[in-house]
Design a binder for these strands. Structure first.
Lengths: 192, 192
DNA sequence: TTACTTACTTACATATAAGTAAGTAATGGT
DNA sequence: ACCATTACTTACTTATATGTAAGTAAGTAA
């Protein structure tokens, strides 16, 4: 939050990109500093340790998610609109080259991750699951969706399927992602 | 293939475990050699480079998959039985601590991976997708499954969903995996 | 018994990541 | 004019991964 000058923002932006492409152990401060045309050690000025950087990045994701949801809800967004936002977000990130969602990108390294990062990741994951559960619940109540499974289990599968779809699509291309999203929707009894 | 003495087998076994927990960049020759009580350089005796090791490991997966499928088919396994084998395999691996499937475990590092490893991973992925497509196709024809989407798209989603489910389950526990598998089945119109 | 192979070890080379300490140049306030 | 702060750079340390070269001990085949 605090001092958000341009360099800091660019650091976060590139770090996010790298994280969502290569995971926690897949990028270094040097990768970022080279992009910005500054030195390795400059990143340490903003984020003394890598865990600080990634934790900050995940926390920012979480705040953005909360703000975006609040805005949709406030403007009277239906369950379908909210879920569509989730899918569109994945597509947008795919088009920006961020093939993997943040939670997915650190799952592999999860056990070996610094506590700080683990914690932020769990919080983000939980926010997403809670939100999707709530969306599915109201969607079923409003007749926007139609399925008979427990809402929480179904929400988990939606998140998992999208996570997997993003990963496979990073190899097989955008069409795969689009197609899978449309199947996920149809499994919710969402007929256009 | 060739010389499969005990050390070699153990190397492959530990490497597979590490790969499926931590991904390509998440483990080193030292991790493996320590487990075996031998020296780092001994692994290089069997696999001069890391890419040789991982490529060999993926190829072995592919061969095992082909053999297992052949055996099920030969013994007259139905589409449901074949698909159940796929799910049971995921559960078995989960119980062995291999939380992530091999293809999923290298997707994050994919672009930066040595050609050899990329190639083997694509082949494995393709074998799985082809197999599941074929199983779904015959399953629909035999009335074992019931869905209306194109078989290939549905097969992709099954694979993606299971991949994602394994990953989330590595954090949230076995119950999540079991629950998601049962939803994936119900989305195929598989009612017990 | 000699020659060769297998399965390693010791010791080293190279690269890179993560992090620190100290210094500098520019800016703004007092 | 002085001081503090910000935003870096230079130069270094430490740790670890990957890989190589050379050697050795035990077994195998002629």
């Amino acid at each position: 939050m605090k001092d958000m000058n341009q360099t800091n923002q660019q650091i976060l932006s590139y770090a996010r990109n790298f994280l969502q492409c290569r995971g926690y152990n897949g990028f270094s401060y040097k990768d970022i500093s080279q992009k910005l045309g500054i030195k390795n050690a400059a990143i340490h000025h903003y984020y003394p340790q890598k865990e600080d950087l990634v934790a900050a990045l995940l926390e920012a994701s979480r705040n953005k998610l909360a703000a975006d949801i609040a805005q949709i809800v406030e403007s009277g967004g239906s369950a379908r609109e909210q879920l569509q936002y989730y899918f569109d977000y994945a597509l947008k990130e795919f088009d920006e080259g961020k093939s993997i969602c943040p939670p997915g990108s650190v799952i592999l390294d999860f056990e070996e991750l610094p506590e700080k990062v683990k914690k932020q990741n769990l919080l983000l994951l939980d926010d997403i699951l809670t939100w999707i559960s709530r969306v599915l619940k109201t969607g079923v109540e409003q007749g926007e969706f139609n399925f008979s499974d427990p809402v929480d289990a179904r929400a988990e599968l939606v998140v998992e399927a999208l996570m997997g779809a993003r990963q496979l699509s990073s190899i097989k291309g955008r069409k795969t992602l689009v197609r899978s999203i449309s199947l996920i929707k149809s499994d919710l009894g969402w007929k256009d």
